[in-house]
Design a protein around this nucleic acid. Structure first.
Lengths: 230, 230
DNA sequence: TAATGTAATATTGTATGCAATATTAAATGT
DNA sequence: ACATTTAATATTGCATACAATATTACATTA
């Protein structure tokens, strides 16, 4: 096949945007499906073949993901899925707390019946997945609940940073494989947080969120490391 | 020259890392020197010629910078330096406040004589530039003072996020061109903040930092937009 | 067998060619 | 002159070629 005229699909599949963006999305998706796992080396050609594109857009996508901290990069040795240490996970939880506590203060200044409705919907989606014992995707539902009140702060950058931090933590935990352990408590805690927000009680909301994040962290840390955090 | 054998310098100039990273750094530098300005379209070949490399590493560098929010990207229309709106600047200041107030709480838990010494040095560097009326680079010195106490929190991710936010604000302001206006007050405020930190008074430090950030913001907003923030 | 060296293979890094698309300039009509 | 079409030019997006480097497989020796 060497020397063949270069090929290119007729239309660029508008929904996908360009190939770099498509590759970026697909590779990130693969990370969250644990299709590629922390520590694993990523080979350009493999992705190129898998995604049906050349190495150029793969290269672009990987350099972005590395810049975001999802991948490690060593010159001439390529990319690996970042394997986060316990210490790093601690740091990410610290930031998550700072972001959420900061966001909730702004969010409560801007509550509206519509927003509360949306938040309640998210809360119920998580609840439902627990009731029906659907473990798959539950971590994402939790993320959505938290993202929802962060979003209420109406600061898109803040939401972006929140998501990035949350996703970086997620990648550490391979949470989908974990036992369901704390989900009943989570349902209750979400309910309390929702209540504090709807009552516009900043102090209470912050206290509850702090406890909620730390309890989740402790649970995860003991599940993964066999010990509490720090 | 067309069809000439492709060239490549003998050694890869270890200090520069690879070409992509070099391009990334240089282009960012150009942004902060206002060598390229908000709204300006960035042409691949221009950078390639300017930096003496091909379009490939430029492409990589630009896609990273776009992902970080410094550039806007429109498919098939290339990259432009992001032109931040007043609203966006407000959002960035909100995040900056959240990050710094969160960081200072952690930082104060971890103060040590050495760290205070470093912070004092940074404080004095800014002071000196005001005394000697060196306006060039003063904004960077301010950043370093703030980064210094954020760094005391010993959370590298937090420092990264702080720098990113601060730089994104900087890009908006073209601050180097602004009148020196508030710098005498800044010196005093830095002194007060330093004092609160060295006395491990979290509440006072947070209050002072909040005021400091807001005063700076108001000054900048009125200098740029001719009106106070919001 | 383990360690070391060496050849074979794989992979990265980047320059470049070319099609698709966008932008600009020129030409034409109103 | 101004708008509109058309041609000319520029630019992006991507595939690919090839050198530099890294990795692996294999042979050789201790």
């Amino acid at each position: 096949m060497a020397g063949t005229k270069r090929e290119r699909p007729k239309v660029s599949n508008k929904t996908d945007g360009n190939r770099t963006q498509m590759a970026y999305r697909k590779i990130k998706e693969m990370m969250f499906n644990y299709d590629i796992v922390p520590g694993q080396r990523l080979i350009f050609v493999d992705f190129a073949n898998r995604l049906g594109v050349s190495r150029t857009p793969i290269n672009n996508a990987l350099s972005i993901l590395a810049n975001e901290g999802f991948l490690d990069f060593i010159p001439n040795q390529g990319y690996r899925v970042h394997e986060i240490t316990r210490e790093e996970a601690n740091h990410l939880y610290e930031i998550r707390e700072i972001i959420e506590l900061g966001a909730i203060e702004l969010a409560i200044k801007k509550v509206s019946p519509e927003k509360l409705k949306t938040l309640e919907t998210q809360k119920k989606l998580y609840e439902k997945s627990v009731m029906q014992q659907v473990t798959r995707g539950r971590f994402t539902l939790d993320q959505e609940f938290h993202a929802c009140y962060v979003q209420m702060a109406e600061n898109p950058y803040l939401t972006d940073y929140f998501r990035e931090v949350y996703q970086r933590i997620f990648l550490r935990h391979r949470i989908e494989g974990l036992p369901v352990g704390r989900s009943r408590e989570v349902v209750i805690e979400h309910k309390e947080i929702f209540k504090a927000i709807s009552m516009k009680d900043v102090g209470a909301a912050q206290k509850l969120i702090k406890q909620h994040i730390r309890a989740g962290k402790d649970y995860i840390f003991s599940a993964i490391f066999g010990q509490k955090s720090i």
